[in-house]
């Protein structure tokens, strides 16, 4: 599996990571190497094996529909890089992000 610089750029866009040329080159080589190594999994017979998503397999964990205290607004906003005392503030949102 060899990743091109173009592949890496595409993944970086998907992951919203701004990378420089050197990063892209390096990641292309390193990710290719790791994916090559991961190819050993293809040797494993997995026919009929259920994927294991959870380390301990539970089901039906609920909470009741009861209101809990929300955070005061000031705490909800306290870590925001930009806020107006009521909202989180971001640059004008265009249709695509």
């Amino acid at each position: 599996m060899s990743l091109s610089a173009k592949d890496v750029e595409k993944v970086a866009r998907l992951a919203r990571l701004r990378l420089n040329e050197t990063d892209i080159e390096q990641y292309a080589a390193q990710l290719s190497q790791i994916l090559d190594y991961a190819a050993i999994l293809e040797a494993v017979e997995t026919e009929g094996v259920e994927p294991m998503v959870h380390a301990i397999e539970l089901a039906n964990v609920w909470r009741e529909d009861e209101i809990l205290t929300s955070l005061p607004r000031q705490q909800a906003l306290q870590n925001s890089p930009a806020q107006d005392g009521k909202h989180f503030v971001v640059p004008q949102i265009l249709d695509a992000s």
Binding site: R63, L68, L71, K86
Partner: peptide, 18 residues
Amino acid sequence: CGCSTAFNPQAPNTQTCP
């Protein structure tokens, strides 16, 4: 989560939790 679902646009960001 346990935050209220009440429609409350007059008080933004008051029905939130971690």
